[in-house]
Amino acid sequence: MDIETLYEIAAALNFNVEQLLYFPPNNNAVISNSIPSTFFQHASRFYSYFYNGKNKRLVKCVMDIIEASDAYRYKVMMYMNVKDYDYYQDCENTYLGYIENYDVLTSIILKNQATHVEQITINILASFLDSSTKWGLMSGVSFHPFMPIALKMLFSKKPLKENKDLINELKINKEDIRIMKMYNMMSIV
């Protein structure tokens, strides 16, 4: 199939071309090696998790870093509520946006591809430190029910073992509530 036809199919389906393509892990080694954030270097795929208290279940996401826009900004695609990592593009919601990396902060700004009014922001502190996981704070608007939200999100370079320990880490705990009361704001450290 030629590129023009691919773009026509994407337009007819109201998708971005990136949603029709499969990106194998680490396919963007040159791009991911240029990312200043240590946590996000050397890989183009990340896994993230959060806990949905309403449905009482773990939500799995996959994020692909697609291409560089400039020295600090990279185009990303996030697949939310993934059932199977082998077919992660078959998911509940897809988001397209950018990841911006700075010395002490990584920000990810994404728009839902089915409902453009939904925009989420994820902030991750200390991404310059290398570790196997990183905590982030995701904020935006929930549509079930319709209200502004903020929640804990855990990022990993590889899929994590999905068990009660992971779920308990993702739930808001006493220390989160203590910090929230102290500052009168949701904070993830």
Rank of each mutant, 00 (worst) to 15 (best):
L96Y: 13
V82R: 03
M80A: 11
V76E: 03
R57I: 02
I66V: 14
I65R: 00
D103T: 12
M80G: 06
M80P: 00
K56H: 08
K54N: 05
V62R: 00
T106R: 03
A71F: 06
A68N: 04
V62E: 02
E100L: 07
N101D: 11
Y85C: 08
T94H: 09
E67F: 03
Y72Q: 10
K60Q: 07
Y87F: 12
D90V: 12
D84F: 06
S107T: 14
Y79P: 04
D103G: 15
M77A: 12
Y88A: 08
K75H: 09
D64C: 07
N55W: 05
K54M: 04
I66N: 00
I66F: 00
L58K: 01
Y72A: 10
K83W: 08
E92M: 11
D70P: 06
Y72G: 01
A71S: 14
Y88Q: 09
N81F: 10
R73K: 14
D86E: 14
D103H: 12
L105Y: 11
C91T: 13
D103W: 09
Y72V: 05
I65N: 01
K54F: 08
M77S: 12
R73Y: 00
D70M: 07
N93Y: 13
D90F: 11
Y88L: 09
M77D: 02
Y74F: 15
I99G: 15
N81G: 10
K83C: 08
M63P: 01
R57H: 07
D90W: 06
I65C: 02
M78N: 11
Q89Y: 11
I65E: 00
V62Q: 02
Y88D: 10
Y98R: 02
E67M: 05
M80V: 09
V76Y: 04
Y85L: 08
Y88N: 10
Y87I: 07
T106N: 04
R73P: 00
D70C: 06
G97Q: 03
